[in-house]
Design a protein around this nucleic acid. Sequence first.
DNA 1: CATGAATGAGTATTCATTCAT
DNA 2: GATGAATGAATACTCATTCAT
Lengths: 210, 210, 210, 210
Amino acid sequence: MTENAETPQAGPERGRHDKLGRQRALMDWAKVVFSERGYDTATTREIAQRAGCSEGLIHRYFGGKPGLLAAVLQQRELSRTVDLTAGMPRQATVEEELVRFMEWEIEKSWDDRATMRVTVSRAVIDPIIGDRAREFFQATRVDFLRERLAWHQGEGRIRKGLDMGVVAAAISGFAFNSGFFAQVAFQEPQELVKSEARTIAAVLARGLAP
Amino acid sequence: MTENAETPQAGPERGRHDKLGRQRALMDWAKVVFSERGYDTATTREIAQRAGCSEGLIHRYFGGKPGLLAAVLQQRELSRTVDLTAGMPRQATVEEELVRFMEWEIEKSWDDRATMRVTVSRAVIDPIIGDRAREFFQATRVDFLRERLAWHQGEGRIRKGLDMGVVAAAISGFAFNSGFFAQVAFQEPQELVKSEARTIAAVLARGLAP
Amino acid sequence: MTENAETPQAGPERGRHDKLGRQRALMDWAKVVFSERGYDTATTREIAQRAGCSEGLIHRYFGGKPGLLAAVLQQRELSRTVDLTAGMPRQATVEEELVRFMEWEIEKSWDDRATMRVTVSRAVIDPIIGDRAREFFQATRVDFLRERLAWHQGEGRIRKGLDMGVVAAAISGFAFNSGFFAQVAFQEPQELVKSEARTIAAVLARGLAP
Amino acid sequence: MTENAETPQAGPERGRHDKLGRQRALMDWAKVVFSERGYDTATTREIAQRAGCSEGLIHRYFGGKPGLLAAVLQQRELSRTVDLTAGMPRQATVEEELVRFMEWEIEKSWDDRATMRVTVSRAVIDPIIGDRAREFFQATRVDFLRERLAWHQGEGRIRKGLDMGVVAAAISGFAFNSGFFAQVAFQEPQELVKSEARTIAAVLARGLAP
DNA sequence: CATGAATGAGTATTCATTCAT
DNA sequence: GATGAATGAATACTCATTCAT
């Protein structure tokens, strides 16, 4: 739940050969600077300075400022998907399944709120980032949740006739809204957000039951 | 459902003295341009050109680009709560109530997509705008919905013991997500979004029932 | 025969509104700076500074550095063509016609050697400028000379059966070589160049005679 | 007539120690890249990449980009006068002599167009290179042609009283113009250029005859 | 010796803002 | 009051060169 991005590792010593270390430092600080200033207002110069290396590297390694944002976004979602699919065991009840899913989203959203702010702010405007963001934010999560719900449906805990794809999409959207909008953008306290999520999970579970 | 903001009135004839007409044209086109390009990427030149007047006026009237954004953001707050309370009669069932509420949100979000893009894109980054946006996007709607749900609860159509404030907040968040994110930002077709909303409304209504 | 481009008029007073004056100053100083440093090495900053106005104007008025070069080139050739066709009366003999033509080319090349240096240096490499330069350098002059020679041929001073188009092209090329290459690039003294031209004109006239 | 410079030998295998091979590869590709892009626009990176070795070597071997250009420019001076005098037997008529000379120039210019582009593009701007270029392009050829013409004059095929030095200089200039400018810079088809040259050779021969 | 990672000075271009007309 | 010409500060990106490996 801590914001690990606020104080990235210092980059490699000046002049030393360390491509990987510099790429990492650049991406880490990009997250910070982008989130402090917004994508447009952030300057490649500041990112490079704080990462402790030369501006040109941003262009050499990532193909410029837009490439850097894309790289940050990608890296973030890669690690998150792994985390989602690996880290969450199946739950015994639908309600518990939904609660876990929402809590996970809420916590993860908080962890990298910095990156999410920039990404969303940009996605709303730039269709390229928008598409990418949708894929990242939604697709993997909806797939995951649909599979879980379908399994519960198969086990007879959800009534037949409901399309789990649609339900999963809707619930995933709700979770995203809680995690990002309510919590990050509108700054509601996490406990409140989570409690709302639990309430709604209960209602939904009851509504889904046979 | 038509986008009234995409083609604002052309401003007053060039060179004519018409302060009010020019201010309106400038603000109308600012919404469009800000929403098309984002605040930073938008240029005062383009706004002025499309509004049919000179760049200098943006500074004279609004104190520059930030002032213009502020004016746009502020103006919007006036007009919306009205139609919400006025235009929507109480419904006989909870499901119908939720369906209406969500559809209204989805349609309004579409009509207003230009302004919403600007606002959200900024709100996500700038906490001050974020606060204002929350109040506007959420508070009024949550109040409205809570009152409605409480009424249904009083009528015995929703089981006791549930906090309608929490439920209303959650549902309102979901509606916002459908209307703005799914539909506007991620460009899903309105019919799909609405159909998802109806499905989830049914599930929720069932979950709320005594 | 003086190089008028070396000390252009000072541009308009700073801040004054004078679009035309600034365009002129910019073009005048572009000639100088381009010729002093070469196209690539010249900087828009220096051009603007010496012209006494802001860098942005180069982009607003001419569409950037390449546009500025093109503008300079065009203006120069425009005035030259007028000069050529207006200023040269028909001569009584073929030899005199050729001598006059060559001397004109040699003198004009010297007058704006600065611009020619840049243009040629660039034309050799950049096909766009190359094509344009060929048109300017050759087409108008070849047309002019062909017409003159055809007239002499009609008068019986040149033998039938020779294609005046081919002859004109060749002679024009030779003149260009004398005026620019020998004189400007290779720095041979003008008198020597002219005397060579006169000699060859005599030989050619004799060779063309019936 | 084939362009041997356009596809130089690939350099030595990567990482192998082969100083001489690398120097040659670097110079060969420098000619090509300089001529394709011009000196300033060419990048050491591209040259090194195409030569198949690392950028650093350009600095180690040649002392940087300017040094590489100097090396290219210098190397060329060695090889050309030889084939001129060796390869061309005396002709029986003046016209044939001129035709041969011009055709030789046109063909050589084409073969060497890469180097010529670089050289001319620089010579036009840089007086030092200009001087060297004149010596090379002109002096040797003028000497050669003067000797030939003087011989024809001695044989009574050219009228007395004409200064063969002046005539040779003029004709050599004309040949240079055809070979380089018309053909290489302005991209006229070689056959057209040659045919023009033949026409003018006939006219000149006739003009020179006693 | 050869590599390629790293540098930083330098450039064209953009744009909000000012101000002469 | 309205215009649009002019400004200059700011920015992403390039590239010759250096130097750790």
